[in-house]
Design a protein around this nucleic acid. Structure first.
Length: 803
RNA sequence: GCCGGCGUGGCGGAAUUGGCAGACGCACAGGACUUAAAAUCCUGCGGGGUCAAACCCGUACCGGUUCAAGUCCGGUCGCCGGCACCA
């Protein structure tokens, strides 16, 4: 009977030993490898097996790199400011500083159970004044560079979280955090000019080894488009209305114009006859929430009574108002070409506005148009001097033509908006700005940072648009750093993203009290080589971090402009039937009991075995028995055979190299679930071998090293049991010799018309004719018809094609 | 609506990219050991068919290319994710 290995004992033993003698050391000669996890926010629920998986994947990868001779930077920290921490504190009735500290302690305990290579000396916490000093410092730098500015405007407001939100935090018109419907609120806000970096954020995606999906999401979020602005005169007035269009080639087909109800001129365009309707439409639109506006697919609108003049052909086009035009994109006004745009077509049909086709479809004009013809391909018609041109050519040329004619210009537009950066909540970094009646906005001098978050009794959000900090008069009232006159502090705080946008830089120099990061250290240890985390941050954290890094690169803090070279998104672990694990659903699986019963190594292995790492997987506790049995079988195999001095047979050597090759290839391709099944498969073969004459020690050692990134304790224990005095992590990753993997004999399937009838063994270097002859012999009794064709795929298939 | 991803046994999932479909594991069934149970070990495990074989069917569905299709092509259905009046 096999004695199951005592996981508690050996895990404790080796963790103590590794702490005393670390296996990951910087000797100054090794190349660095920076493998980063998305750091957790310390909520009260602790980690579940889904969080665990991400950390296991990154640790396996780190240890693999360690065995390949790298010095590993594999840090961990806490994203502890922000709404989740604060909401939890409010719910529990304790100060967020206290609950955060408690939660950090608990999650740290759980994370330590993973036995990852984390270097706790590098640990950061975004709520630590020594950390947020630099979060504030970056803000001050941005302010000085003109990238942080104040603006009053209607912003997204979550009535439940009682704070303003960035566009990125609004998903389907709802708060990303709590799911409440987002409303608009007019507030004076701090904004970050991320739009200044739009082009670089877009272009540099090309350099990144990231999942295409994430790159695409960022590309769409930035939403670059190319076109022209065209100035339309207003009939009987001096003002002009400028529209933005990506299809200036269709200018002759513009039969009306639509302005967003919020457009500056909207109200003034009505006449005595239309005034009542126009005013009502503007008012109604302002009352609609984002969700209503998005869901109201049926187009609404009102004619202002005023006409614009098409600058190209002098045609009179009616000016309408409609909320399908967005006020904050382009110029808030569009020219409408119903023949070649779906939305304009729908609007024109509904309100009986003429439709003029200007691009021929299949060479002719469409009779009884039932839908817009939106392709930019075809010959121009009804377009005056443009007739006969190809629309695809004209589309590119038109902006320049229009510019020459003097009523427009070539333009580029982005969907990306500047980043609403202030929050009306307590638990965040205070924005280090002083409002002076004389000097305006003055940044807190850099040497006075950090500007500490004051202690308060009442930190609940007010809901008025004022931060709870506004109530602390002794904190708010200060003097202007510039002129010394009485002044007031900014009372808004930063969003949770502020700290997470740059924390990965701090890890490499986390105790530096003079600089954000020492430039020499940064040059040596940064940027991040591999970043592992969920896909949910595709346009939030991952976009913000790129923006911050580019800014810090511009002001010389770091010498690179992309923070994360490679990104891996692990799939989510769900409960039964793919339901997301949550406390309210009661389907959360904690790693704690599993670690206790099966050990850290088994859970690590099972986290990988449960499914492909990039896909979501349903958790099923029962499966862990399989990997636990495997570990016990391997353990027993090593213990029973390590001292037997068996001389390796050619087959043992071949299998050993094949094992190394298979595991290494699968690991490099991140097929971690098949790495585990590979280990099991080879283990079964080795057990079989051991039964029939024994197994050599080198094969057992090789398997032990290959297993080390996955099951560090078991590997370390067995490695020492086999007589080694140094850690298994100093052993070096085995190399597969492809020559040693060559088989002398191959099993070949013999088929008739593609159906296997027999399997024969042939010499690997057998020639085609001999192979086919051997194959035919094996199935001689089944060859009854006329053989038309004979196929031999070396080492795989013999196919006899018969009629 | 548009753009991605996916669809394989009772279940999780493999399949060297066109070459023996179901590796590996879970669950289940039978056997060995045991007074018994657990653990462990051995055997079986897509469906039909047969005493057993032969044989037939089978990777969501329909069709195509090929000596050979889970894999490639055309179409249909379903699930998941992203975007969604951005002019």
């Amino acid at each position: 009977m096999a004695i199951p290995y005592n996981h508690r004992e050996i895990e404790q033993k080796w963790r103590a030993e590794w702490e005393k003698n670390p296996v990951n050391v910087d000797d100054g000669k090794k190349e660095k490898y920076y493998c980063l996890d998305m750091f957790p926010y310390p909520s009260g629920n602790g980690l579940h097996v889904g969080h665990w998986r991400g950390y296991v994947i990154s640790d396996v990868w780190s240890r693999y790199k360690l065995l390949n001779g790298y010095y590993i930077i594999h840090p961990m920290g806490w994203d502890a400011f922000g709404l989740p921490a604060e909401n939890y504190a409010i719910k529990m009735g304790v100060h967020p500083a206290i609950s955060t500290a408690e939660n950090v302690a608990n999650i740290k305990r759980q994370i330590n159970e993973i036995a990852a290579l984390y270097d706790w000396d590098r640990e950061v916490n975004t709520t630590d004044p020594n950390f947020y000093k630099w979060t504030q410092w970056i803000f001050v730098k941005m302010f000085k560079e003109g990238l942080a500015y104040e603006k009053e405007m209607p912003i997204n407001w979550c009535p439940s979280c009682k704070t303003g939100l960035a566009n990125e935090e609004v998903v389907d018109g709802k708060c990303e955090r709590c799911g409440s419907e987002v409303t608009k609120k007019n507030l004076k806000q701090w904004m970050l000019r991320i739009t200044k970096y739009a082009d670089r954020l877009l272009a540099d995606l090309d350099k990144l080894d990231w999942p295409e999906k994430v790159k695409k999401m960022q590309t769409e979020w930035i939403g670059k488009s190319h076109g022209a602005e065209v100035d339309f005169a207003i009939e009987g007035r001096d003002e002009k209305i400028t529209v933005y269009t990506t299809r200036p080639d269709t200018l002759h087909g513009a039969t009306f114009m639509v302005l967003a109800p919020e457009h500056a001129l909207a109200a003034s365009l009505s006449n005595t006859e239309t005034k009542e309707d126009v005013d009502k439409y503007i008012l109604d639109s302002s009352m609609k929430s984002n969700v209503d506006r998005l869901q109201g697919k049926e187009k609404t609108g009102v004619f202002t009574g005023t006409y614009a003049i098409n600058p190209l052909n002098g045609a009179k086009v009616p000016i309408w108002l409609s909320d399908y035009v967005l006020a904050d994109y382009g110029t808030g006004a569009i020219m409408c070409v119903p023949a070649h745009d779906d939305r304009d077509f729908e609007f024109a049909t509904k309100f009986n506005i003429p439709i003029i086709q200007v691009i021929a479809k299949d060479g002719k004009e469409i009779e009884n148009m039932t839908e817009a013809y939106t392709a930019a391909s075809g010959t121009m018609i009804n377009s005056g001097e443009w007739n006969g041109m190809q629309s695809s050519v004209l589309k590119a040329e038109a902006p320049k033509i229009i510019e020459k004619m003097g009523f427009g210009r070539e333009t580029t537009n982005y969907k990306l908006r500047d980043w609403v950066f202030s929050r009306q909540r307590y638990w965040g970094e205070p924005i280090p700005i002083v409002h002076c009646p004389k000097c305006g906005c003055v940044p807190v001098p850099e040497e006075q940072l950090p500007l500490l978050l004051p202690e308060v009794e009442k930190y609940e959000p007010t809901g008025t648009g004022e931060s709870p900090l506004a109530d602390i008069t002794e904190w708010v009232n200060t003097t202007c750093p510039c002129c010394g006159a009485p002044a007031k502090r900014e009372t808004n705080t930063m969003p949770q993203w502020a700290g997470s946008s740059w924390y990965f830089l701090r890890y490499v120099d986390s105790h530096n009290d003079k600089e954000l990061v020492n430039r020499e250290v940064a040059d040596k240890l940064l940027p991040v080589d591999m970043y592992i985390g969920g896909v949910e941050h595709a346009v939030l954290h991952l976009l913000y971090s790129r923006f911050y890094t580019k800014f810090l690169n511009d002001i010389g803090v770091v010498d690179f402009d992309e923070p994360f070279k490679k990104l891996f998104n692990q799939g989510m672990i769900t409960g039964k039937n793919g339901i997301k694990m949550s406390k309210s659903k009661g389907n959360v699986v904690s790693p704690d009991d599993l670690v206790r019963d099966y050990g850290c190594d088994s859970l690590r292995l099972y986290e990988l075995f449960v499914g492909p790492p990039d896909l979501d997987s349903e958790w099923d506790d029962r499966g862990i028995d399989g990997v636990y049995r495997f570990l016990n079988r391997f353990w027993t195999l090593v213990m029973d055979n390590k001292d037997k001095a068996v001389i390796a047979t050619p087959e043992m050597i071949r299998l050993r190299h094949k094992l190394t090759y298979d595991i290494t290839t699968r690991l490099n391709n991140f097929n971690l679930n098949t790495v585990v099944s590979g280990f099991m498969e080879y283990n079964n073969k080795f057990i079989e071998m051991a039964k029939n004459g024994g197994i050599d020690k080198e094969t057992l050692e090789t398997m032990t090293i290959l297993l080390a990134p996955f099951v560090p304790h078991v590997s370390e224990e067995l490695w020492r049991e086999m007589g080694h005095t140094d850690s298994v992590f100093t052993a070096g990753w085995p190399e597969a010799d492809e020559d040693a993997m060559v088989e002398t004999e191959k099993e070949v399937a013999v088929q008739i018309n593609g159906k296997t009838k027999a399997v024969i063994k042939v010499a690997a270097d057998i020639d085609k004719d001999a192979a086919i002859a051997a194959g035919k012999e094996a199935i001689a009794d089944k060859i009854t018809g006329n053989v038309i064709k004979e196929i031999y795929v070396p080492g795989r298939i013999i196919n006899i094609v018969m009629k």
